[in-house]
Design a protein around this nucleic acid. Structure first.
Lengths: 222, 222
DNA sequence: TCGTATTGTGAGTGAATACTCACTTATTTT
DNA sequence: AAAATAAGTGAGTATTCACTCACAATACGA
């Protein structure tokens, strides 16, 4: 009932292994679920409504997914399977080494992630909403995110710190603040402003401000 | 059923006018509702549970609040009644004029708001969650927020722009980015990291980074 | 073509839910 | 103190919900 028992990652691994074959009806069910979950949220969506929109009998949902919670997982997990590989260490390193400065890295990374999120806007919204709503999912996912994502940002930051690109403050603070800004940027534009389209110019703008700050640089006072 | 019909602000004004007298039981009900809404979300909370936690009969809830939606409003509205006066123009101006720089202004403002949000952590969480989940509430509230909050930040920014404190980019961008960061800061720390306590040092840190950026400056500032 | 497994169905089920109402208890007004 | 109003109660109600199950249709290898 609560999505709480099953550790998210176990589910991810389990599902990854037995790469299911989707029937036509299953596809319809998942599409309908994504659409309605994104619109009204998981808790406010009934399985009967999903069935109606998908054009299948309600029983068919339970034949394939067993429970409503499991259907949510089946919607969310493929999103993560696509999300995390891009956040893999090699990819980070590759972007970082193909780029002259941290500014360029941030731009490239943000553009890449925003494009992906815009392509999968509905699922992204489902995930963020559930992440905020569902304490259990959050407890499962946040440690995983910080282990993977955070540590990789950290590594990249270290790389540019060594090259003397940053002001002289601890890497932890830089990482923390960059993540806060990037997270705030993504969440505000994808969740709070649902019909917003992020332009490349805006990304350039945002990154430039993170790097340069908004204060004037020529006076030496603090 | 959907909180959708009633315009939020109408409700705010209406409620403000007839400053209800709270009975002891009403107080208990609201306290219980805040606590459980914050924990599990509005949609996942039943009125019977609220009644049980509050130690009243379920009927008592409906005697006073009529519907569950209305109870949610009765929880949320006082929060806004406390939030918005602080965001009133005079207060903004006062903070701005008692302060030497935009950096100091931001610090003062953030410390003030974070203190308030920490004091009302549970309600803040309910509001943010519902804001994300409830499209209708969002449609009601976001325009109001942008009219009030955004325009005031804009005014303050203009003030400091005139004093030549910022790099030479349009005020809109500055405002947008500052709000993105401040919003991301608040949401990430209050909603995603529920047990997080924000220290003054961290606020100083964050603001300094917004002002100065993370890039190294040529002229050896700071 | 038959047998078996998989996929699909929708009426049915018990539990839960928001809300009602006839009633009792407490408070205020006269 | 009597009457009137408001606060509080909890069993009851209609509806919705996630989920089941006996059965039907389809796919598919032998």
């Amino acid at each position: 009932m609560k999505l709480s028992e099953s550790k998210l990652l176990d589910a991810l691994i389990a599902q990854a292994k037995l790469s299911k074959k989707h029937t036509e009806k299953q596809q319809k069910i998942v599409e309908a679920a994504i659409q309605i979950f994104a619109e009204k949220g998981y808790a406010n969506t009934s399985t009967s409504e999903i069935a109606k929109v998908a054009g299948v009998a309600e029983g068919t949902i339970f034949r394939h997914y067993g429970t409503k919670d499991n259907l949510l997982l089946s919607v969310i997990l493929p999103f993560f399977k696509e999300t995390f590989p891009v956040m893999a260490e090699e990819v980070f390193i590759e972007i970082a080494s193909n780029v002259e400065s941290f500014e360029e890295f941030l731009k490239a990374f943000l553009k890449n992630r925003i494009a992906f999120f815009l392509e999968n806007k509905a699922i992204a919204r489902v995930v963020v909403k559930e992440l905020i709503y569902n304490e259990e999912l959050k407890k499962d996912l946040l440690p995983f995110l910080s282990e993977n994502f955070l540590s990789r940002v950290h590594k990249v930051a270290d790389y540019f710190i060594e090259r003397g690109e940053f002001i002289d403050i601890p890497a932890e603070r830089i990482v923390k603040m960059v993540i806060t800004f990037v997270g705030g940027f993504l969440v505000s534009r994808l969740v709070f402003l649902p019909d917003y389209t992020v332009t490349d110019e805006e990304i350039d703008d945002a990154v430039r401000l993170v790097i340069s700050g908004i204060g004037k640089k020529d006076d030496g006072t603090e």
